[in-house]
Design a protein around this nucleic acid. Structure first.
Length: 553
RNA sequence: GUCCCAGUAGCUCAGCAGGAUAGAGCAACAGCCUUCUAAGCUGUGGGUCGCAGGUUCGAAUCCUGCCUGGGACGCCA
């Protein structure tokens, strides 16, 4: 498929040169479309319009010259037409599709893999929620989108590393310690107020009880310092473990959990500040140390070291990003919640101040998730009265529905998540629609075997000539390009769209044609092979977004 | 006040590194199961792509201004 397109593009370029319409330097990239309308052929190019200015001729005249010079014998062309303002439409003879099925069956789970990423080293940092409570739905969407994006990038040939940044060094750790302390004391029956900025999640209540049960009143008698140090460390490891467990259950794992504290223990901050100072982006004012981020288009300069001598959040963050770059990543992708978008200009400024291109850092903003049930907006959990957590929703609707819905829409638009739809086993639920297509194929393959048909038999793909079959073949052939495109544009939702389209094409075929037909064994064999190819492609697509492909439903 | 994102069918959204008659799901209406799962299929109706200019052979897509909705603007993290 890809070869077919490249061949076609090459031949078009040759025809343009032969017709003397442009020199090799002037020649623009040949763009091939797959028109939606079948009367416009299998492929179309707008090259004639693009050349209008260069060749100083009318687009239709240019198109005629190109067609005249085109060597049809070299690219499986049945027919060419000039249409509209100057499109050239190519109608392929269908041999170009017959290799597709064997290729897919041979590739199996690697079908869809391309090398468009060319081993480009890319790091994706996502979720990175503070270790002070449960993951909520914004985090869940970030996790689903981030993981899907990583899968897609890998499939497109990028060298991807997934990382979670643990904010375990700021003031919030003291708040965590004080919150655990309060819950511990309360568990022992003491009167003890929660700190002002404390964490009120039920996970902290459970943690307080856990320590009280295990250690009794041991910590009441310790010095405040020793006690809080213990609660801090205990709380942190408890929270991190919980994050890791919840995410793993959600199907999301990381190569690396990076501790903010390690930036201090491994002395990464000073050298970062030195480097910025060296380059002249740092100055002192009002007893504080500032970063001149306005040099790179930020609204105002930012404080790095406060009057009291402590660092702002930005300082370790710059050191962290320098560390990432030092590790050799060529592109950094950060997936952030919408509330952090104001932070992008200063972070990009920092990247540039460190001597890198601004677009070395890409920030994908994940918009809010609104939950709906019974037609009403839901904000709070019925059980706890707090914001609904990832864990609760997993229990409520299951991982598959969440993963699908969270990547279904483009990340920069708000997402309405309807619990009733996600749970419904009906045609309004796209997850079931896609999984159902997969299960249907599995049933057919199983029945084929029960009827004594060899599902691995030799087949003749040229027997697949009906319109529905051709639609399926074309759809299957698009997959590698769709994945590559989704990777390049960082648009995981393109994959859910494709899955839906493929499922729809399959359902349509299924209703129109019968696969298992004892009276036409040769065609049955070919259709079985086609079904296997569709099944593989569906499963590969679903796997990219972290959704299972069940064999029966 | 400054900045970011969004505004496309009744609803939820695709399409936006310009291309042919703007697509899909839901909802509405009319059909399809003695035959591989009807969790499915087929068909019909439904649009001044927020508004106004501009660039172009061509604009939902790019540029400018305006309107509406959401969000961000700490020596918090």
């Amino acid at each position: 498929m890809e070869e077919t397109q490249n061949r076609l593009k090459f031949e078009i370029a040759q025809a343009v040169l032969k017709a003397g319409l442009a020199t090799e330097e002037e020649l623009p990239d040949v763009v091939l479309d797959q028109p939606k309308d079948k009367t416009h052929g299998d492929y179309a190019t707008n090259i004639a319009m693009q050349l209008a200015r260069i060749a100083k001729m009318a687009p239709r005249k240019i198109a005629e010259d190109i067609v005249a010079q085109f060597d049809e014998t070299r690219a499986s062309i049945k027919k060419m037409e000039i249409a509209g303002p100057g499109f050239i439409n190519f109608f392929m003879d269908n041999h170009y599709l017959t290799n597709l099925i064997p290729n897919i069956l041979k590739a199996g789970e690697t079908y869809g893999k391309t090398n468009t990423g060319n081993g480009h080293k890319i790091q994706v940092e996502f979720v990175s929620a503070n270790p002070t409570g449960d993951l909520h739905l914004g985090h869940a969407r970030g996790a689903a989108v981030g993981d899907a994006l990583c899968n897609i990038l890998e499939k497109a040939g990028y060298d991807v590393q997934r990382e979670y940044y643990i904010n375990d060094a700021g003031n919030q750790m003291m708040n965590l310690a004080l919150s655990v302390e309060a819950r511990y004391m309360q568990a022992l029956g003491e009167e003890w107020d929660m700190p002002e900025d404390g964490y009120h999640g039920k996970d902290i209540i459970e943690l307080g009880m856990e320590i009280a049960n295990k250690d009794g009143d041991k910590w009441v008698h310790q010095s405040e310092e020793a006690r809080r140090k213990f609660f801090r460390e205990y709380g942190l490891s408890y929270e991190v473990q919980k994050l890791e467990n919840d995410l793993r259950q959600f199907g999301v794992t990381f190569h690396n959990w990076f501790s903010e504290t390690s930036l201090y223990t491994e002395n990464k901050l000073k050298p970062t500040l030195e480097k910025l100072k060296e380059k002249g982006y740092i100055y002192e004012k009002d007893g504080a140390t500032w970063f001149r981020s306005t040099d790179f288009g930020d609204d105002k300069d930012r404080v790095l070291i406060k009057q009291d001598g402590s660092y702002t959040y930005l300082t370790p963050d710059i050191a962290y990003h320098k560390n990432k770059l030092d590790r050799g990543f060529q592109t950094l992708i950060n997936i952030w919640g919408a509330d952090h978008h104001g932070y992008i200009p200063r972070m990009k400024a920092a990247i540039q101040a460190l001597g890198y291109e601004a677009n070395t850092l890409e920030v994908e903003i994940i918009q809010m998730v609104n939950l709906f049930q019974d037609g009403q907006k839901v904000k709070m959990s019925k059980r706890t009265g707090k914001a609904i957590t990832l864990r609760e929703l997993m229990e409520e609707v299951g991982v598959d529905a969440m993963r699908y819905f969270f990547v279904m829409r483009s990340s920069d638009s708000h997402l309405d998540f309807d619990i009733d739809v996600a749970r419904s086993q009906s045609n309004e639920n796209p997850v079931y629609y896609a999984q159902y297509a997969h299960a249907r194929i599995c049933t057919m393959l199983k029945q084929a075997q029960e009827k004594g048909l060899d599902v691995n038999a030799q087949y003749n793909a040229s027997l697949l000539i009906t319109e529905k079959e051709e639609n399926l073949l074309k759809r299957l052939g698009e997959f590698p390009q769709v994945v590559a495109d989704a990777a390049e544009k960082r648009t995981p939702h393109r994959i859910t769209q494709y899955i839906f389209e493929l499922a729809s094409t399959l359902h349509s075929f299924y209703n129109a044609e019968k696969v298992l037909d004892q009276d036409n064994i040769e065609r049955t064999k070919a259709r079985i092979a086609l079904m296997k190819a569709v099944r593989i492609t569906l499963e590969n697509g679903l796997t990219l977004i972290g959704v299972s492909a069940p064999e029966k439903m």
